[in-house]
Design a protein around this nucleic acid. Structure first.
Lengths: 164, 164
DNA sequence: AAGAATTATGTGTATACGCATACAGAGTTG
DNA sequence: CAACTCTGTATGCGTATACACATAATTCTT
């Protein structure tokens, strides 16, 4: 089987499009984001903001880097996402003992925003669970966790040059 | 069960964070995107660009709106994504008979980019399939398709005001 | 055929995302 | 303590995402 074909086999392309984990995860993420964003609209929060806020609530005062690891977000992305929440007064960002650190915590106003958002989130989540079935949703969540772990494992060596 | 609590139950928050379909889909999408982007790096294509290019290849000359539906992307987002590919000379965008339409097709250079990218994509995909198992990947793909359909179904009525 | 409704697309604005790079504080070593 | 390294963040840049709104071309109505 010659790997480096000069001509693109339509059959193969079809199969690639159908089976690509990343493509389909991104499509599904976009679709669900629109649903959740739409449901959350009355709260003034977007899904991303809701998620970060919830993580800040749960993990209490936490450093940027740790919060980024939990949410599988680039540190630099999280920095800017948090800026939005800080401007809205929903989170507090302050220096820790180690003055390099920035510790994130939820504010009173942030908690109120969450309280308002939770029933809206429940509607979106219920829509998914009713459509797919709770069991399948559970299986999906397990697969997603596994996918995250696997994606973080830096195999795929020939194409991950790293730092020489 | 009082729905509108004044206090956030940590237990409940934990459960929400663990079970939110959107949050976990987005996390997984970010994780896989980094893996695929990393593998695709030698080709000069990002995952998004690779996917759009592949769709353009498969669907031949196709209008923006239809391509947007297939890729589950906002039309306006796709417009800008295509601009990047057009600047690189990988796609051609031209008016159709109906002069409102913009028809997208892949160029010769675009096909060459795909040919170079496919083995890199295969490495990323193989990494996922080896880690999760082909069967579980298959189940996941099915769930993702279902999630997309469900998310597009505009139930969730009280929170989708629509146009009055 | 003039006007209305519909369809296909583009722009302004704002958020979300991440790589490369820079910098500042903390720890380590001579 | 000076120099080096390591760690935690921030900034510059470019791409990705989508809503609200605007525009142009087609189709429908009367």
């Amino acid at each position: 089987m010659a790997d480096n074909q000069k001509i693109l086999d339509p059959q193969k392309c079809m199969e690639i499009g159908r089976s690509c984990a990343c493509y389909n995860l991104r499509r599904a993420a976009r679709a669900t984001t629109r649903l959740y964003d739409d449901c959350l609209k009355p709260s003034g929060l977007r899904t991303t903001q809701y998620s970060v806020l919830m993580a800040a609530k749960l993990r209490g005062p936490i450093t940027l880097t740790k919060l980024a690891q939990i949410t599988v977000t680039e540190r630099t992305t999280l920095t800017r996402n948090l800026t939005v929440l800080e401007k809205k007064g929903l989170v507090l960002i302050e220096a820790g003992k180690d003055r390099r650190e920035r510790r994130v915590s939820i504010t009173e106003q942030g908690e109120e925003a969450l309280i308002a958002a939770i029933p809206l989130w429940e509607a979106a989540q219920a829509h998914i669970e009713q459509g797919l079935g709770r069991q399948r949703v559970g299986a999906l969540l397990g697969d997603l966790s596994a996918i995250i772990s696997i994606s973080r494992t830096p195999s795929c060596p020939p194409w991950r040059p790293g730092k020489p």
